[in-house]
Write a protein that binds this DNA or RNA. Structure first.
Lengths: 241, 241
DNA sequence: CGAGCGATTGATCGCCATCAAAGTGGGTGG
DNA sequence: CCACCCACTTTGATGGCGATCAATCGCTCG
């Protein structure tokens, strides 16, 4: 997910409800000025979810929209026999709730302890109606998510297990959310099971592919939840077939 | 793809450039009134593409947006070794060109002889800026495409070949574009190769699965490009695992 | 230190890909 | 009008990648 074009937000007074919000500059609210932001924020509330807890289930009425402020989420869908597909991960600054349907088509859960900024959908829609730049921004967000979803379609439809895992690591490395302080190390907040269900594989296969990349000196497994990318060029070559 | 909520468009004078446009009521331009539509149309032009011809290639600069007026399109991506994934099909009324990038990420080609309404992107964007209801509509379109792409993610990541083919047939049956005059028959404008590349399968597998569904009396293959859905309930049961 | 869960590694299986060949149908030219 | 051609589709035989079944490892927490 790339940085969206954002109009510069004004500095906020310390008393402003969004003062100190780590994601204000990249999130959907980043296009609002100080007064607009204050009005916007009054319509919402902060909520927390521990790792594994649910924001909403598929089939739930889509009563709210959300902005992820810290942590990580997964959006997933279950088939009747328990097979699960994860359609995406969300990181701080990401917007949750793009839909035109009454009911959510996917379940949203916290991958790790997370905090969100929550808004009733009706109020959010009304606010958007009066702020065209927000409407524009929402369209840009939807377009980005569409591009990401179609990339995942290519990955799932035509890539091998090795290519899938290499692509996944490079995708995380590209976004700012999973980069670790040092240079080439990335943080994997999600479990092997989450990775497998995102890539359309089983956990054993993910584990084997990671081990194989390690054996080939393309990566180092610095811990179960962190990976160092040793040779990005060869990783890219692998990822694109 | 479901019908979007459309404000009723006024009847058009016979001299109006969009008079007789078969898709005006469902397309992106459907939210415009007669005068707006005339202004909109002046910025665009009609183009034709024969079956197999390209609208744009992945990597091309995204200079235009399009509205499909007749025929069918596929949007696809090639891996370096020639593997192809089709990310979606477009039918009359569908909008082509949702992207925030300079370059198209996918190739768009005509599945059958097609006609499109073409607009320079800059002019289109300017027009959208002055017509908020159009912006809204674009957002709704993007949200729908996102939902469709994520459905395809689930299909590609977790469904079996049988489930994929059953889901595909039901998807086409749901949209109005492929329904044939009679009740349960649907028209498949695309080749087996297109179907295979959409479902992440090979053409032999698609053919075998269709034959198996026929043998099980769930469908009839009325011709290579048409299928009669005999037992939708069992088809649904198959499609959802 | 032991329990328990997630991750890794190993052995075997099955679905779908691949390789191969025959069938089908639409279009062209004789 | 008919015969041929070529591309697409269907059907058949075999193989490989990733799933499944199974066992061990290793970390965290009580």
């Amino acid at each position: 997910m790339e940085m969206l074009p954002i109009s510069p937000a004004a500095a906020l007074d310390e008393a402003h409800p969004c003062f100190g919000c780590a994601i204000r500059l990249v999130a959907v609210c980043g296009v609002l000025n100080s007064d607009e932001l204050a009005e916007f924020k009054r319509g919402g509330s902060d909520i927390e979810r521990l790792a594994g807890e649910t924001i909403f289930f598929e089939g739930d009425r889509a009563t709210h929209v959300y902005n992820l402020t810290s942590g990580a989420l997964r959006i997933s869908k279950l088939l009747s026999d328990g097979r699960r597909q994860i359609a995406g991960f969300l990181f701080p600054g990401d917007f949750l709730g793009i839909t035109m349907e009454d009911e959510h088509a996917f379940t949203a859960e916290a991958v790790v302890d997370s905090t969100l900024c929550q808004f009733p959908r009706a109020r959010f829609d009304a606010f958007v109606d009066t702020h065209p730049q927000l409407e524009r921004h929402l369209y840009a967000i939807a377009a980005h998510e569409l591009a990401a979803a179609r990339q995942q379609v290519v990955l799932l439809g035509r890539k091998t297990a090795t290519e899938k895992v290499a692509s996944f690591l490079l995708m995380l490395a590209k976004g700012p959310a999973c980069r670790m302080p040092g240079g080439d190390e990335i943080f994997l907040p999600m479990s092997r099971s989450d990775i497998a269900d995102y890539l359309g594989l089983r956990i054993e296969t993910v584990s084997r592919e990671l081990s194989a990349l390690k054996a080939d000196r393309l990566i180092q497994l610095t811990s179960t939840h962190s990976v160092r990318l040793v040779d990005r060029d060869r990783l890219h070559a692998l990822a694109e077939g």
